[in-house]
Write a protein that binds this DNA or RNA. Sequence first.
DNA 1: TACATTAAGTGTGCTTTTCACACCTTAAAG
DNA 2: CTTTAAGGTGTGAAAAGCACACTTAATGTA
Lengths: 245, 245
Amino acid sequence: MKITHSAGSADDINMQLNYYQREDQVLLAVDCIIFGFDKKNLKVLLIKRNFEPEKGKWSLIGGFLKKNENLDEAAARVLETLTGLNDIYLEQLHTYSKIDRDPGQRTISVAYYALINVDSHQFDGIQIDSAKWFKLKEAPDLIFDHNEMVEKAMARLRRKAMTKPIGFELLPEKFTMRQLQNLYESILGKKLDKRNFINKINSLDVLIKLDEKDMTVSKKGAYLYVFDKDKYEKKVEEEGFSFKL
Amino acid sequence: MKITHSAGSADDINMQLNYYQREDQVLLAVDCIIFGFDKKNLKVLLIKRNFEPEKGKWSLIGGFLKKNENLDEAAARVLETLTGLNDIYLEQLHTYSKIDRDPGQRTISVAYYALINVDSHQFDGIQIDSAKWFKLKEAPDLIFDHNEMVEKAMARLRRKAMTKPIGFELLPEKFTMRQLQNLYESILGKKLDKRNFINKINSLDVLIKLDEKDMTVSKKGAYLYVFDKDKYEKKVEEEGFSFKL
DNA sequence: TACATTAAGTGTGCTTTTCACACCTTAAAG
DNA sequence: CTTTAAGGTGTGAAAAGCACACTTAATGTA
């Protein structure tokens, strides 16, 4: 039987299993794009590498897939290991496989992104002091294809935020309309009209207005809201409601 | 230095490279969901496996990633090898990694989907006689997690078709309004109003109406159209036009 | 104590888009 | 010359999107 790298017949492919088992295994990594939002700015969490290659440069947090876990679990483990965070909205983004993306060795990387609320998660369990939040616009150049990953995650976040109520993952449980609007303005990269925004949000009817005000920003104080997840899910289920901003 | 599978400090992770290089390499496969459309029905291309495991069952076409190619190239190679097709719209979908998804061995699979026009590609170079088109609703159960892949590809196709003119990849170069409408009805899984559909399409202003009729279906004959890709791209570029159906 | 400052809160009207809806035309076959 | 089967065409009502400006509440300062 002929074993070859060139495109052959289906039978070639079928019989190549042994060949592949021996020769074509690869290292699979996960890299996590962690988005945060603190009142005013969208941020991304980066670490400074303290090992080669590219030691001293900034990168996404990442790690390698282990034999006894799937990719979602690997991403969650990496996130928890490096930040102490668990139970976070984490979604697979894309798999990167350029041959020389990691100059040290052939590595394929599966990118995940997560949304976390900077203030209510103070990284109690954080293991690394080299991790830092960067405003998206001020983020440094990253190693390998990590810039590309952040770009793509940002595009996905933009799209997703328009059709799913994922923005609330980035905010504290209680938030003001202004904070919510700031968040959407950050995600979409443009200013929105205050009245139209509030009208739109209210027409969706998934927020609960509290009798409580946030007095930290203004003298008058702004009412706090919470996202009513149960109501949202009931609406989706019962009336095929779809969140559109 | 302690080497461990449990979540450790960042330094643990940093130093685990050697460990992983030796132990945690995996086989990476690509599987392709090939959509076609022949006048009336959305179809998917499947093959009957003639090797173990799951010999005799239907599956997506697939193959393994090689050392000297990236994933996009692997998917294109697999597609070309099995169907003779090249230069096809091919997009990465998702990476599947359940530990026992392939009972024979630990394999991670990256799914791609492609759209092809059934009629104008007659599989001249086809290497396998076990490949067959199935109407989506009548497709058999597939091996491993391939059903899940087809589901997800279908969801992606639905979403994408609403905002990008990808539907035209599935049609012959010249097509009638009715064919286009049938295609969209297949993708969206619901009937559309004829007049509203035509008005909508025409308002997008990216089709060229030919002086030629398709006489094969009706006695009266229906005008043929072609998608004006240059015009579409110019509109996107110059006026930020976005295709919305 | 009134004046200035700062952010909060609130509604209307125009424009655009969406959606429901029905009849006539053409050409071939019987 | 009647029947049949698909092609082709327009309007009006409802909903959604969007631009737009002033008043209120609380505090600090003159």
